[in-house]
């Protein structure tokens, strides 16, 4: 299928997802265009993480269609690896490879997937470590880094594959408060450079300043999707209002 500039880079159409009898996603529809920044929020268990995990097929959906970069996600393995190498993912728990140094974490995928030489991979890795402002930590192992540093290494690791899209699954939720801003700063820089991003986060300040679209999910459904200004000032649904009052009240 031909990809044009006007087509969304990510398209979810009536996506359903079940875990046993539990329906985690109910007819979810979402379109994300190149360069857009989407912030997804909602109570825990609302299907936010499940949705973005479906976009790089860490979970497989049970109904509907998902297209990423013009490629339909289905049971064809070749497609899935192609999609994954174009879609970077950052996890709540960082998920760094503990047996590799920071720079080793960054070099692995370029070497194994992009077939770069060791020297090339190291050069790429150092470039991205500089971008997340921790080149001096290159030769440390993950346990020797703070949470904020680990998450920045994880972001750099995803960027090394030069992805079209970055997915963030609650990237600051496991961090001590004083480290949240250093990770958000990196994410804001990335957004300003034009990266297409979907972030599951409760950092509403980030949503206000960066997002083009704010999505509120509850019980497996997208309840509301609006630009942040409208979303925060004029939420349409009762559920959205209740959620916002809970997270913004303190």
């Amino acid at each position: 299928m031909a990809q044009t500039e006007q087509d969304p880079i990510i398209r979810l159409k009536n996506v359903d997802k079940f875990f046993g009898d539990f329906q985690a996603l109910k007819k979810v529809n979402l379109e994300v265009f190149k360069g857009q920044k989407v912030v997804v929020c909602g109570p825990s268990g609302s299907g936010k993480s499940t949705m973005i995990r479906c976009i790089n097929r860490l979970e497989s959906h049970d109904g509907g269609r998902i297209l990423v970069n013009g490629i339909e996600l289905n049971d064809s393995l070749r497609n899935i690896d192609a999609v994954r190498s174009e879609v970077g993912m950052v996890f709540q728990q960082f998920n760094l490879f503990p047996h590799l140094t920071a720079v080793g974490n960054l070099m692995l995928a370029p070497r194994l997937v992009r077939k770069k030489s060791k020297a090339e991979a190291r050069e790429i890795a150092m470039r991205y470590l500089e971008r997340v402002h921790i080149p001096e930590q290159a030769d440390k192992y993950p346990v020797q880094l703070s949470g904020g540093q680990q998450q920045r290494v994880a972001i750099a690791r995803a960027l090394c594959m030069n992805p079209e899209i970055m997915l963030f699954d609650e990237p600051t939720s496991a961090l001590d408060p004083e480290m949240i801003h250093e990770v958000l700063d990196v994410m804001v820089e990335l957004a300003n450079e034009g990266m297409t991003m979907i972030c599951v986060t409760h950092e509403m300040g980030f949503a206000r300043s960066v997002a083009d679209l704010t999505v509120f999910m509850d019980a497996g459904e997208i309840v509301e999707a609006k630009p942040p200004q409208e979303f925060f000032e004029n939420p349409e649904h009762e559920r959205t209002r209740l959620f916002l009052s809970q997270i913004l009240s303190h």
């Binding site: 860490l58 192609a82 994954r84 970077g88 760094l96 490879f97 503990p98 692995l108 995928a109």
Partner: peptide, 26 residues
């Protein structure tokens, strides 16, 4: 940690290579 395996897969590393470079050393 299964999270490290997910991370490898999300980078587009094949399951065979994930086994040898991520699972086995840990």
């Amino acid at each position: 940690d299964p999270g490290t395996v997910e991370a490898a897969r999300s980078l587009g590393i094949s399951s065979t290579k994930t086994f040898f470079y991520v699972r086995l050393p840990q």
